Simulated scan of single mutants.
Amino acid sequence: MRVLRIIPTVDPAYGGPLHSMNAISEEMARSGWENEVVTLDPPNSQWLAQNPVPATGVGPGRGSVGYTSRLGQWISDNAHRFDAAVVHGVWHWASVGGGRGCRRSGLPYVLYTHGMLDPYFRQIKPFKHWIKQAFWGTQGPVLQHAHRVLFTAQQEAEAARGGFIGPKYREAVVAYGASTPPKSDPSARIASFQAKLKLTADQRYFLFLSRIHPKKGVDVLIEAFRRSAAADFGLHLVIAGPDPDDMIPELRRLAQTAGLTGRVHFVGPLAGEEKWAAFEGAEAFTLITHQENFGVVLAEALAAGTPVIATRRTNIHIELSKTGAAIICDDTSASAGQAIATFLALTEDKLAEMRRAARAGYEKRFTIRAAAQDLMAVLQEAKDTLR
């Protein structure tokens, strides 16, 4: 079966949706399914050739949503090569133009919302919500005519209901997951990463790895770290990820004001073995987010055997709690600071137990295989329904 993926970009900075799309596509290939990608990237984008799943760019588009008629035309010209499509996200032309193109061409499709219907956004930007409501007349029919609109947690699906006035859609909750570290011995890559940070063998660190964005709560994390770990001079905080909003200068000033100079490390985006080394070498993975749909990085941390400290604003916080490898808190510096203090007070035996539970929890709930199987089932259903 051949599947078309429609996504705004294959720039790695796009984050979790792209990385999971590629990992799930590679898992589907093991069952003989072929995936191909069309994006709003310009045809000469360096990311197209580097993407592990074959990708074509039909951009760039115009305006804030990236409008281009070339997307619909490309789908019309190529729809005969595919059995079904997956649209990734909302509020951009890859979603609207992609969904319209599939419908005109008779190509059945499903749509991942990737957390973009979360009511959090309505709460923090009410004016922008009404702009989205106006756009729902354009976006809503794409969801309405999808075979299924896919959510990756029951909490996400329930929270999204009734968010906009207009067309309804048929939802489904599917598994979602993350890939695993390389099977080679992690010792060498961990040592290399620690050397990059200029950390000695007895110095430890908490890790944040994600897009640096106001909703991710990096400022709250730094303050929580100051509250509970400032006196432990052997403990550091590593902040990794792209910074599209240029937040790092202000975060550096915040760390300096908190008396953490030299102990908060901004290392930029990480990929490949270096990314996995960061996970594997961390005491804990910390995501003090104000809103998170699934959080691929949380599943990756568990896959690396690393405990997590995360907030109730993460839609999978209940699933994380059930693994026995997570401490869940509110998205405030006081609550996160208490979570960090609780973690630091754990005995070595309890820490070892949490690390074992992390990997076991990943295997039970967050594997790429489970995500691929669920997606293949709903795509096969979409294809069969069209007959």
Rank of each mutant, 00 (worst) to 15 (best):
A371P: 02
E300S: 01
A341Y: 10
V264D: 07
A360N: 08
A258R: 06
I368V: 15
G361D: 09
T289Y: 12
G305N: 03
F366G: 00
A326I: 05
T286S: 10
A352F: 03
E283Y: 07
I328S: 05
R253G: 02
E292H: 08
A278W: 11
E250A: 14
L254H: 11
A301Q: 02
F366P: 00
V297H: 01
L379P: 01
V267I: 11
L320C: 03
T289N: 11
A345S: 15
D349M: 05
R263G: 01
L302W: 09
A258P: 01
K275W: 07
P269S: 12
E381W: 09
L344Q: 14
L251H: 06
G305W: 09
C329H: 10
V296G: 00
E274D: 15
L302S: 02
G241C: 09
L260T: 11
P307W: 12
A370M: 06
G361T: 09
T342Y: 04
A271Y: 15
T332E: 14
T257M: 04
A345K: 14
Q338Y: 13
H290W: 13
A334M: 12
G241F: 10
L287F: 15
A341K: 13
L379T: 03
L351C: 05
Q338W: 12
A301H: 02
M247G: 00
D243G: 03
